[in-house]
Each structure stands twice: as C-alpha cells, then as structure tokens.
Simulated scan of single mutants.
Amino acid sequence: MSQSVGTLRQQVTGDLYAEVQTFYAQQMRRVDALDIEGFADTFTDDGEVVHAGGQRQSGRVEMIAGMRANLPRYQDIAVRHWFGHLLIEADPQDEDTVRVSYYTLVTQTDREGKVSFQPTFTVDDVLVRRDGRLLTRSRVIHRDSPAAPAAS
C-alpha cells in the first residue's frame, strides 16, 4: 500500500519534538532489549496496535501475550528499530493528544555481525499525556510497497 504525503497544519514546539523523540528512543530500547512488560507500559491500558497484516492487539495483556509468542524469533539476534522522518502534530481539540507519523526500519544482527534488513513500514501513532508522561494510545502499522504507476 502506498502512503500519501502528509503535511502539517501547525508546527509543534522544539520541546514537544524533543519529548516525542525521547519517548520513542526509550520505547524502542525497551522492545529491542526484549523488555516486554516495560514496552507494554509505554501504552495506555486500553492501547491498541494494528499490525500491517491486519492483526489487532488491544490492551497491555494482549500485547504482552503476542510479544511472548514471538520471542523465539529473536533468539540469537540483536534487533534495532530505527525511526525517522517524524511528522508530529498536536491535536487542536486536546492539548494532551499528539499524532505522529513516521518511517521505521528494523535491523537484525546475528552473532557473526551479519545485518539483515526487514521490510520498511510507515507508522501512525496517537500519543496521549497521562500524569505528565506520554503513552501510546494507538498504533497503526502500514507495510511499504511501491506506488502504483501513474496513469498515462
């Protein structure tokens, strides 16, 4: 599925941009370290993830169960999630809600140091501020694919 090019209606402050970047750095270090409970703790209790294949996980308990089931895939490899090209937009109706769209690349490094790249994705998140900290309320993951050729 080809992703449309988005534009921001209003630029966010540098402080919010840095806070969102730091949030993702901490969130991804948890998942890359296979800290499943710590990663799930970066979502709201009713947080939801819609994976590129259409699978949906709702709530921390379901997320943790899904991640535990996938742990054998990550034996003997180091996984790194790389995010870039973040588009961050504050919700004009709710100062505690931030919408973020970004590209992600996942690498896997084996014991010999060989690096493999996983398919790329575009991710759309809704972050909310609860008790002064950002949490992910929803995440929708879109697998990248070539754009359809332009009609002649």
Rank of each mutant, 00 (worst) to 15 (best):
T7A: 14
L8A: 12
L8S: 14
R9L: 05
R9M: 05
Q10D: 08
V12Q: 09
V12N: 01
T13G: 13
L16S: 00
Y17I: 09
Y17P: 06
A18Y: 08
E19D: 12
T22C: 10
Y24F: 15
Q26L: 13
R29L: 08
R29I: 03
R30E: 05
V31K: 07
V31T: 10
D32F: 01
D35S: 01
E37M: 06
F39H: 10
A40T: 05
D41H: 03
T42M: 14
F43H: 08
F43Y: 14
T44F: 08
T44M: 10
D45E: 15
D45A: 15
D46V: 10
G47N: 08
V49T: 09
V50F: 05
H51R: 02
H51S: 14
A52I: 04
G53R: 04
G53F: 06
G53I: 02
G54L: 11
R56D: 01
R56A: 03
Q57K: 02
Q57S: 10
Q57D: 08
S58D: 08
S58A: 14
S58M: 11
S58V: 09
G59I: 13
G59Y: 02
G59T: 10
V61F: 03
V61H: 11
E62K: 00
E62C: 09
E62D: 14
E62T: 09
M63D: 04
A65N: 07
G66T: 12
G66Y: 11
M67V: 07
N70G: 15
R73Y: 04
V79G: 00
R80K: 14
W82D: 01
F83V: 10
F83N: 08
E89I: 11
E89T: 00
E89A: 10
A90I: 02
A90C: 10
D94C: 13
E95G: 11
D96A: 13
D96R: 15
Y102T: 12
L105A: 11
Q108F: 00
T109S: 13
R111C: 06
G113Y: 11
V115G: 04
F117Y: 07
Q118F: 04
T120V: 09
T120G: 11
T122D: 01
D124T: 07
D124Q: 00
D124S: 05
L127K: 04
